[in-house]
């Protein structure tokens, strides 16, 4: 029984993109394999590690547990949409400055989750950041410099009033 492929259209990092995929295609595979944005990673397949976190319509979503068709018509931001090397988003600056990453594999997802946190809480305490990291796993850093990175990012954002991802840029 062949199931017909479906067209999934999204606005991703500000650009309209579409691809025909099997209906069972996970959002993460759609983003990585069909749209070629490989910055988003897969770590656990059961939505514990959060390496696949992206923003869908302003909400942080684990893209390994969402079907691509569920995201049809939505606006998505991935790590590639945060900022490029010459124009880094505060969260990227924070992670670089404070050594918030080692292997860098979970980092894109962790950064997206933290962008989500800072949207709700622009001045989080250490404890609030640690709680905000509940949905992600980093095996390298022991989290301490991630906490520093997020605090640093929050400070930059407060100082420069940078607009948050998921809102109009």
């Amino acid at each position: 029984m062949a199931i017909e492929n479906v067209n999934v259209k999204v606005k991703i990092n500000g650009k309209e993109r579409c691809a025909k995929v099997e209906p069972r295609t996970l959002l993460t595979h759609y983003i990585r394999d069909d749209l070629g944005l490989t910055g988003t990673h897969i770590g656990c397949d059961t939505s514990q590690c959060g390496a696949c976190s992206v923003m869908v319509d302003g909400e942080v979503v684990k893209s390994c547990t969402v079907l691509a068709v569920q995201a049809d018509g939505s606006e998505i931001t991935t790590v590639e949409g945060l900022g490029d090397v010459n124009n880094l988003h505060p969260i990227q600056q924070g992670f670089w400055e404070k050594h918030g990453l080692q292997c860098g594999y979970c980092t894109p997802g962790v950064m997206m989750a933290m962008v989500g946190l800072l949207k709700q809480n622009p001045d989080p305490s250490d404890e609030e950041i640690r709680e905000g990291l509940e949905g992600v796993i980093c095996r390298c850093t022991g989290y301490q410099f991630i906490v520093e990175a997020v605090k640093h990012a929050a400070q930059i954002m407060r100082e420069s009033e940078v607009q948050l991802v998921g809102e109009e840029r």
Binding site: R32, D33, G36, L37, T38, G39, T40, H41, I42, T78, V79, E80, L82, G83, D84, V85, L88, Q92, F95, W96, E97, H99, L101, G104, Y105, T107, P108, M111
Partner: peptide, 21 residues
């Protein structure tokens, strides 16, 4: 010093095994 390896990793430009097509 902050790390040389980070700019690619924080912008989604790392090149991990599953990125190879």
């Amino acid at each position: 010093l902050k790390r040389k390896e980070d700019p690619k990793l924080i912008t989604g430009n790392g090149y991990f095994s599953d990125d190879i097509q």
